[in-house]
Amino acid sequence: MATKNAISSRERSERVAPNAAAIPPVAERRRKPLKITDGMIWVLIVVATLWVFFPFYWAITTSFKEHLAIVSQPGFIPWLQFRPTLLNWEREFVNRGPEIMSGLTNSGIIAIGAMIIACALGTLAGYGLARFRFHRWQNKDVTLWFLSQRFLPPMVTVIPFFLVMKFLRLLDNPIALIIANATFTMPFAVLIMRDAFKELPIELEESALVDGCSHFSAFWRIALPLAAPAIAAAAIISFAFSWNEFLFALILTYERARPMSVIIAGVEHTQGIQFEFVATRLLVAILPPALLALTVQRWIVRGLTFGAVKG
């Protein structure tokens, strides 16, 4: 990783700071004078990691607590402060199994459907923006226009969207949410793919064109396979955001098509909130996108900043 960074920083130095090249090479490489000691840094690493993991840890331990233990012996450490039990998980999967399964299935269908549409159209558009020049509207304006979808408050479109879906008889149908989420996540796909194609050497496609290949097959046979990691990243980001979307899911579904995000919202009971129930359910709901996201880490920064920052 260190060597990779060194290379990328050398590449960048010319662009970011033209003066950098003018500075004579340093003969004697010195380590940075560290005021913060190593020990302090490790303490901070531990604190920061605890900060990140604590909510997950809390959810996991809570899911293994009996209701009585939650109320009477609030504590953090299993076996020491409370006796762990599998009861909640049993209930979640046995008693409420059908509900969870339907929620997971719906979330999966919605997220995968939205992902496919967003990535298909987004990859095409990204390629178009990276490889061709548009005149009437410049490329950067089209790019920014795609990005601006992300700036749009969903509250502006949710009521008309609801009315349209009602008119089309698509309420409580995953298709409505697939359409909505494909629209919301398309900016990610377009900007990630545009960025990825821009980085590919154009010569490969050019020589294919010279050899009589069509523009489309140059895209399909040469550029697309090379951009596969970026497509995976775009796919997982749009999957995760679609999975986690709540407002449209709440408005557009009421029974059969309810995804996990809406099912979680049903955890509040009239007799107050049941921690153990919340914990099991939300762990089920948050794991799929979170675990998937771990697989495309290298692309997360670039993807979530729409290519503005290279990770």
Binding site: T49, V52, F53, F54, P55, F56, W58, A59, T62, I70, V71, P74, F76, A240, W243, N244, F246, M260, S261, I264, A265, V267, I273, F275, V278, A279, L282, A285, I286, P289, A290, L292, A293, L294, Q297, I300, L304
Partner: peptide, 29 residues
């Protein structure tokens, strides 16, 4: 760095409910 990716992809709606248990007045963390 890997672990820091997790919060970003946690559904905010789920996080709100988790927050409810973490900030609960009597037995929250």
């Amino acid at each position: 760095r890997s672990s820091f990716v997790l919060p970003i992809f946690t559904a905010p709606i789920a996080l709100g409910y988790l927050g409810l248990t973490i900030f609960h007045e009597d037995v929250g963390a």
